[in-house]
Amino acid sequence: MHDRLIGAQRTLMSAPAHQIVEHLSEYLTEQYAVAALELFQVDYRLSELVPLDGGPAVTHPGAPAWRAFDHLAEVVDGAALWLPVAVRGDRLGVVRITPAPDDPRLRAELAEIADLLGHSLAAAREGTDRYAVAARTKRLTLAAEMQWGLLPGRGRTGPAFALAGQLEPAYAVRGDTFDWSDDLDRLQVVVINGHGEGVAAATLTCLAMNALRNARRAGLDVADQATLADQAIYSYHRGAQHIDALLLDLDLRTGVVTAVDAGSPRLLRLRGGEISPVALEAQDPLGMFDGTMYATQTFTLEPGDRLFVVSDGIVDATARGTRYGENLLDRFLARSGALSPLAAVRSVIGDLRAFIGGETVDDAVAVCLDWTPPGPGDDRRQT
């Protein structure tokens, strides 16, 4: 690693959690003759890039800041250099650096430093509220606060996959959520379609998600994970409350997916520009009955396949007496193949907002997963 990059890393590691941007800006002024470094974080709705210290947000989709965010690439706009800030595929925002260096080697170094900043921001969020608060354009409800605190992030990439998810309405979501974990050659994904209102719905989802994580971290397969979560919910609510869930376990080497459909959200596959449902036998929702035993089902992906999981809050959304419905959703998803997973879920939610003319009344969740196994001789490594 270049000496200046090592210096930037040390600066980020030694800075107080709430001042890492300021300390990094001072370092770049000394080493790169940078006049200003500004951080813009993406907001909870994925619709604004919000400056850390206030000021107008960037909302126009074609703006240089959004091009850097969407394409994970540098964008030079006059005297400004825009760079994406992300960590393992989870896009946090962008930085604007002025003036933009003419030397492409310096810009490449600054891009690496922006990556280091992403990792530092992810760690700093555990110790300060500054960045979480600055990314909000309005106050979260208590239920939404609980739900966002559950999430593993909004995106993740690895050598053989890319995925992303989004909740809606972002600032008032109640029961819908998602989770994932990648380990060696496996990727496990859970999508929950919650029930109920407010904090009661969020509490039920928290119980289900933590039961599923507890079982997963104990090394249980997805069928036993569902069984344990089912028992946890039933023992507390005695069947009065239940939750719909889809559990997926993808073998990243072979593309074989082991699934448990517990009254789950809608699962769709995009292959060769054609969208089609993945047929799974629906089993009882988690917590509905005492002693439910869950069985796994399998299906196989082909390289380049894309999976979508969407909750009924999208399909059943209604505006002016018209239901959004499966046909409109399928047509929209079929055109999303050129988009990244995050751009795809952002577009789905954006299309839904446009359809209903505002935020959804019901909860909605969308998750997009691409399986992109390395080809022969392709030695990809996650960064």
Score class of each variant (00 low, 15 high):
L52I: 09
E281V: 14
Y294T: 11
I20N: 14
Y44P: 00
V345H: 01
A73D: 13
V260E: 11
D90T: 12
G78D: 08
T292N: 10
G337H: 06
R88K: 08
Q382P: 00
Y131G: 13
D305G: 02
G350C: 03
V257F: 05
V365F: 09
L248V: 11
D251A: 14
P16A: 08
V367K: 08
S347G: 03
T254K: 12
A232P: 06
A229V: 04
H242A: 09
A15E: 09
M1N: 11
N327Y: 13
L252E: 06
N210S: 12
L247D: 07
L247H: 12
R253A: 14
F178S: 02
V75P: 08
L142W: 01
F308T: 03
G62F: 02
H119M: 13
H195C: 10
A160V: 04
H242K: 08
I275D: 01
M209W: 07
L92S: 04
D290A: 14
L212I: 11
G127Y: 11
R217S: 11
A245L: 01
A132V: 09
V173Q: 00
T322H: 15
V222G: 10
D70S: 01
W66V: 03
R353N: 07
F332I: 08
V76D: 02
V315L: 15
L83K: 01
D102E: 15
A15W: 10
D362S: 08
A15R: 12
L280P: 10
G198W: 00
S47Y: 01
I113G: 09
E74L: 13
A8S: 15
D378S: 09
Q31R: 15
R107I: 03
D185T: 12
G93N: 01
A215F: 04
A338F: 09
A170T: 05
P152V: 10
L207T: 10
D115C: 01
P285G: 02
A80H: 13
E48C: 03
R88L: 10
T128G: 05
L37F: 07
A215I: 04
D70H: 05
Y171I: 04
S235T: 05
L212T: 07
D182P: 14
R91E: 13
R154Q: 13
G321T: 09
E302L: 04
A143Q: 06
P56E: 12
I314G: 01
